Simulated assay, not measured.
Amino acid sequence: MGPAHDYIVLYNAPICQFSLFNPLTGRKVVLPFLDIAGPQLVWVGPDPIESGEPVVLSGNSADFKTGILALYQPVEKKWVVIEESCSFHLRDAYFNGMYYVNEDETGDTKVINTVTRKVVHVVPPPSEGENGCDGITGVTYLVQLGGDILRVVLHDNELIEVADCHFHIHRLDLRSGSGGNPRWVKISSIGDQILFLDEDNGFSLSCRNFSGFRGNSIYFIKWHSQDIYDPPLSFLCRYDIEEARAEPLTCPFAKGGTWIVPSLR
């Protein structure tokens, strides 16, 4: 499971066991037992074992009646479990004690305080005119970038070419809007930052720390089929936000994958 910064998150389904594994050093940290259905990785901070940052997973209760948000606290070495009536799923975000999740039916974004376990904001989606793209299916990611939460919509399907992929990006403004209500504000640049998206999740880095990467870009994995009956292949792609243009990159993999920030620690 990923992305996970220094680690890959391993899940042993028969015994409901999660582990953090560094594939370069071989370091493995086994986490406590957690009973969660359909687990998905939401967030792993840089070196959570040393920094004390939590590991955040989402999923469902055993009867699938409630959503479960689970935070592993490295200091206490235990899981904190929060149950909510909404469904937790792929492409949610966590930052600074707040969990951000999109409602499937309404498109609203709930902001949940993981300490008080209360919903502190319900933010409506951007207007349809800001979020549409010629009828192409949209996949929505919530991604933390430099202290902000972004709503990143990838307009794509398996039958269109890479060049036809397009993104709409909004930043969550908790301090403004009509009546002072939180709202999504459309943006056209992320500066020297880079977004990395896989099929399930996303995270950000600064190109100043990583030579060879281009800022104001989105690196993403696209699935493509020549025909509806053909098995899809995956392509590593880069989207230039300023030029609104996507291009495929050289990649040896054809079966998908995820991102990891390698570390020798």
Rank of each mutant, 00 (worst) to 15 (best):
D164N: 08
I112E: 03
F210R: 07
P48G: 10
S51F: 02
G212D: 05
E242A: 15
S127L: 11
W184K: 03
P125F: 04
Q17H: 02
W79F: 05
P125K: 06
L205S: 10
C165T: 01
I241A: 09
G202V: 07
S206F: 14
P32K: 01
Q17K: 08
V162K: 05
H89Q: 14
I187D: 04
H89S: 15
F33C: 07
I187R: 05
R214T: 15
D35N: 09
T109P: 05
R245P: 00
C251I: 02
K78P: 02
K65W: 12
V75G: 10
K186H: 11
W79M: 07
D240N: 14
K78E: 13
S217K: 00
R245D: 12
L142M: 12
D6F: 13
N22A: 04
K28C: 09
S217E: 00
I8D: 08
P23S: 02
N201Y: 06
I68V: 15
C165S: 06
F33D: 11
R238Y: 06
G129I: 05
L10E: 13
V143L: 14
V29G: 00
L10W: 05
P48E: 03
L236F: 15
L159C: 04
V123F: 04
V261S: 12
I241M: 09
S234C: 12
S206D: 08
C165Q: 05
R171N: 07
A93G: 07
E242Y: 12
V42R: 01
N131Q: 13
G38E: 12
P3E: 07
F18M: 06
D173Y: 01
A62H: 13
R171K: 15
Q73V: 07
A62C: 11
E53Q: 13
S87C: 12
Y11M: 05
M98Y: 06
G45T: 08
L264A: 11
G135E: 11
L233A: 12
H224Y: 09
T116F: 01
Y99R: 04
S58N: 14
S234E: 09
E103H: 06
D227C: 12
F167Q: 02
L154N: 11
R183E: 03
S178D: 02
S206V: 14
D47R: 10
V122I: 12
V143E: 11
